[in-house]
Design a protein around this nucleic acid. Structure first.
Lengths: 339, 339
DNA sequence: GCGTTTCGTCGAAACGCTTCGATCGCACAT
DNA sequence: ATGTGCGATCGAAGCGTTTCGACGAAACGC
């Protein structure tokens, strides 16, 4: 930077002002400085910048590694977030934060490396959120706690997705529909999607005046199969099932095979909140309510950076966004069978 | 840090030595300092450290966003890498580096933010690699160029996977086997896996003395279906197919359905280099050669950090690792049909 | 024509560490 | 006693920026 200043015949500080626009610099001076920078191939040192300005332009993405590993949806959060960060001229660091790491988490925040964080897979009651709040670190969430207060978040609109599922199925004439949810353990740890989708489904089905059944189900094929058989024993008139569980839905299809039912001729299946990258590979291709995962990742980052860049004027008004899922039709939903 | 020094009754520099172990510090002094740090809840500032020591302990993960988006395998690279970085007390930043960003890439390296990089999805001839070499930035690869020289890398052993596929199928009695590869475009841009797996398959089949056919195939269901029909027209005796293309394999199964062939009764299908997370969801559950993706991600990071920490003594001897795939049996491979 | 503001620029003081050279005891051999 | 060597500690000089207060010169109002 000294070299640049010398070559442009200005003071060090003037170069800095030219780069950041912190103070006015005359057009001619700016041009001279720009030229010198180009000729020298100068890049400002991000670390030195960060040290004095207290803005490192690094943000962290906190992602848990859930039991079943990350799915396609989570991956898309990450990619969307990484791209958004790059666009906003920030760096995104990955912090795999399992629950046991909460202690580690504030060791990390203590280092002053990052300006803020985006928290993925937020639970209704999430200790990482409490921790960040205590640490005074700005953050946004992908997902949301039960009491998000004024924290920025972007989340899938699970309630809406459940309503969409119900209305798609009732429009096809179904009058007895089921909902296969995530695992009991997900429910009991307060995993938001599980709880919210169940609520949404219940309400939507009641409003539509259709018979409805719901069930939690382990995230694996065998559990899905068993769950379907049980559900059918309990509700023999069932003609359609909305499933928010990519592994279980395979088991359901197995079970349908076993009793000789065809999809969608004899029974309709609607996959909720799963990527077409997955449902396209199933036979028949599943109709799905696909989340806008990548967009959510982007939003999480943009919200955080917006807040970070505010931090001067008015109190930042919280941005809280729920994004609906998009219905992508496959061949797994059909009109109710004339029996 | 000044507070810590004061509280422990030592000089600033002594605290530093105690933290880094750069110079000997007596046990009693160290204890006093440790106590002071704990009491004050002190965390060394990573940025200030980085500024003077030229070691930021931040490394970048360069991942491309391929046409079809990231698959499960790539995701696992990322997670493995993130975990390994954390273990080695480093931070991992994500850089989505598409080809158009090569210019951007050296803007980023110029900032002096990172100590090194791990490059994912390396092509046989990869300009990112040239760029990093020029920039003098230490890096390791997940994958490898055709001339890796002394660069550290960890890659899937595609040749071995192809051999394993051939031997698994021949052991079941198959004497005419096919190989369905990635897309022609992947091949033509010099995507390593595509080229190496094809070579390995060809060689292994010849050595085993079995009839073999291979074909490139677009990464989608329709292409897979068409490819199978063509392959069958060309090679009517085909009884088994190894497929390294998660989307195409679904199309193959569709095509088999169409002609009334059952898997594995009438025809065997072996999925190559795809995660059980995917193959478990297919019906029948596919037999697959599963890559050790997460392990590869970890290795890439460890190699890089090893090199970074060396940088003082002897010339680091290159670590170059090929990891075989694990055979995970599903229900898609069976003995050749007695015809 | 004289104060007063505005604009562009400058020099120097941080930012929170690492690291270098120097100092200081203290045990050891002479 | 005197010198030597070594482990432990100290003070101070950076690292490459941003930012603050100050200053000269041009532009303004009256």
């Amino acid at each position: 930077m000294i070299d640049v200043a010398r070559r442009a015949n200005v003071a060090l500080s003037t170069v800095s002002y030219a780069i950041n626009g912190t103070r006015a610099v005359s057009a001619t001076t700016r041009r001279r400085i720009q030229k010198a920078m180009d000729e020298l191939g100068y890049e400002p040192n991000a670390i030195a910048r960060g040290l004095v300005s207290k803005r490192t332009r690094i943000i962290a993405l906190l992602f848990p590694t859930p039991e079943r590993g990350m799915g396609v949806t989570e991956m898309e959060f990450v990619i969307g977030a990484a791209e958004a960060a790059l666009e906003r001229d920030h760096h995104l660091v990955l912090w795999p934060s399992e629950l046991r790491n909460v202690r580690q988490l504030d060791r990390l925040t203590g280092q002053g490396l990052i300006d803020g964080a985006v928290v993925m897979e937020v639970r209704l009651d999430d200790e990482r959120v409490d921790l960040l709040r205590q640490a005074g670190l700005p953050f946004s969430m992908i997902g949301r706690t039960s009491e998000p207060g004024s924290i920025n978040y972007a989340d899938i609109d699970f309630e809406q997705a459940a309503r969409d599922a119900v209305s798609h199925l009732t429009a096809l004439g179904h009058r007895s529909i089921g909902f296969l949810n995530h695992s009991p353990s997900a429910f009991s740890v307060g995993y938001g999607p599980t709880v919210r989708a169940a609520d949404g489904f219940r309400r939507a089905a009641m409003e539509a005046g259709v018979e409805h059944f719901e069930r939690l189900c382990g995230d694996n094929v065998a559990a899905g199969r068993a769950a379907f058989h049980e559900l059918r024993a309990m509700a023999p008139h069932l003609t359609a099932l909305a499933v928010m569980n990519d592994h279980a839905i395979v088991g359901v299809m197995d079970a349908l095979d076993e009793i000789g039912w065809r999809v969608p001729g004899d029974f309709s299946l609607l996959s909720m909140v799963s990527s077409t990258r997955v449902t396209e590979m199933m036979r028949p291709k599943l109709t799905t309510l696909e989340p806008q995962s990548s967009e959510l990742g982007r939003l999480g980052v943009h919200m955080l950076i917006d807040e970070l860049e505010f931090r001067a004027g008015e109190p930042p008004t919280p941005t809280q966004v729920l994004l609906p899922c998009r219905l992508v039709e496959g061949q797994s939903c059909g009109p109710v069978r004339a029996s």
